[in-house]
Design a binder for these strands. Structure first.
Lengths: 111, 111
DNA sequence: CAACTACATTACTCTCTAGTTGTTTAGTAA
DNA sequence: TTACTAAACAACTAGAGAGTAATGTAGTTG
């Protein structure tokens, strides 16, 4: 199991990481980057979000180690640096699938 | 990998689940419940948080399926209903351990 | 019944932050 | 140089949510 003790400081650290994933916008950006490296403009057009907004979220994702970047002339190319984030999402989606299955069971087979 | 498509609705759902973990207080409660079933008062005394605060967070954790509860007279006993949440935390802590290792490397062996 | 206990709920304050607008910096091209 | 582009930064606004104090509710005890 966990090798790290759940001290208040560690909980704070863990919470800060989770907090970034507790908003659809960063998840959208991460999800988009799953298809490969992209510039800010790419992400703006593919998501429909504002440029400043995308840029700000990418800063945070970068600061927390979720994405890496390289500059090429005018462009800044972003890419995923932490593929484990999708293991996290998949664990969550496992819950989603069970929830949906339970709902289906209730609506369909129940009574 | 994920069997669920990352549609906006799914991202919203996933974000909502992560959001609860993006705060130290629910994590503290979950961490405390890891040692076994507990009443609200137990959690209040063991964490030092206010009663209303604990109660409110427990409501949310329950609404999102992280904890289960049973009433016994005046008491409400809460317990973990989703042990997978610690798989999530362990994944995060994996990052923490790597970060710490990297820092150590920088401070110790690096220049 | 009255008094007490454990928990839930309400109403409120305060802080934080997501998103936007406007501007700045830096690289490119004429 | 000037004009243009991509990205970052700054300042602001609106809304969300964390914590608390006060109150409500249900069960227990006398």
């Amino acid at each position: 199991m966990g090798k790290v003790a759940m001290t208040p400081a560690v909980l704070e650290w863990v919470a800060e990481r989770f907090k970034l994933l507790g908003d659809p916008t960063p998840l959208r950006l991460l999800s988009a980057l799953r298809q490969g490296e992209a510039t800010v403009t790419d992400l703006v057009t593919s998501t429909g979000l504002g440029q400043a907004n995308v840029s700000k979220h990418l800063q945070q994702l970068h600061a927390h180690g979720y994405v890496a970047r390289r500059k090429e002339g005018l462009f800044t190319w972003y890419r995923l640096s932490d593929r484990e984030v999708f293991q996290l999402c998949d664990l969550m989606c496992g819950r989603l699938e069970r929830d949906l299955a339970a709902q289906k069971k209730l609506l369909g087979g129940g009574r």
